[in-house]
Design a protein around this nucleic acid. Sequence first.
DNA 1: ATAGCTGCAAATGTTTTGCAGCCCG
DNA 2: CGGGCTGCAAAACATTTGCAGCTAT
Lengths: 166, 166
Amino acid sequence: MPMKSDSHTSGEEEVFEAYLRRQGLKYTPARRQLLRSIFAVHDHFTAEQLIERLRAENVPASKATVYRTLAVMLACGILVMHDFGEGARYYEHTFGHAHHDHFFCVGCKSIKEFRDERIEALQEEVARKMGGELLAHSLKLYGLCTGCRNDPTARERSRSATTHRG
Amino acid sequence: MPMKSDSHTSGEEEVFEAYLRRQGLKYTPARRQLLRSIFAVHDHFTAEQLIERLRAENVPASKATVYRTLAVMLACGILVMHDFGEGARYYEHTFGHAHHDHFFCVGCKSIKEFRDERIEALQEEVARKMGGELLAHSLKLYGLCTGCRNDPTARERSRSATTHRG
DNA sequence: ATAGCTGCAAATGTTTTGCAGCCCG
DNA sequence: CGGGCTGCAAAACATTTGCAGCTAT
């Protein structure tokens, strides 16, 4: 029975380790713990939030290590980064997740995912028509989620947050 | 002849001044000069680039004033801000310009504009289906422009710049 | 007059980096 | 062993802010 006892790896660990080996990098305890912590849930988190979560889980990792590890994971492709213009960047693991876009609620800062094939196709078409080679794309919708639509506080707060988004 | 000699205002100045008055703010020399400098050309610029340009034009304006003035113009709506994940934010004046999206060349950092009504409509549709209220949206295509497609240097540089974009 | 501006410098907040010591392969 | 890690603290950035003096209205 080829089954390891404490392993719940759903593939990302193998991918990451293979990537590290390929690059001549090392799969250290810190990296293993970060990987597991990050893949334990599927959400969008900032470096700061991750650091706090690690602290709560008693995983010791300095700020520097967290940033450096995130960079390696980005390069590996199991993570993507999002910038919602909130100052800090958001990260999200993507292994096993198809590409998708985001709806960012400016009221509660919650993030919803969606995917629309028609939009995907149109983006390719636009890039092709412009003579460019599309390498990545990012579509973000900013607005008020169902909950915040009826919250006057959120509506008020949202005013300044949206005037200037391109 | 109702024509002022040194005035080439195409409307943005009136809009800005009206906005300032409405808000109980002042149309100072600094603001006037910044407005004119910004509207002299239609491009995408960072705060830093604007400061340099002002310096070259012998327009004295401190960093603080530039940032503060940009904020007022954003609130006024004659300017929008873009975040291409390059660290600094880009600004673009929009008075008289319809909303459009951007193609960002990761090779030479050039920016091309485009607008696709079908995508615009689909974004509204997506937001509506999700029960949210769409306040703003941002679509960015990252890739290599025609010129950079054949530049091995750009292609190389682009590798790290795109792996991680969501 | 007076509320709002401006410049300067200092503070902020996020992310990066230099360095000395540690550790995986 | 040795090249790659790690933590710490300092640096680097873009952006914001406190304050004292200046100025439009």
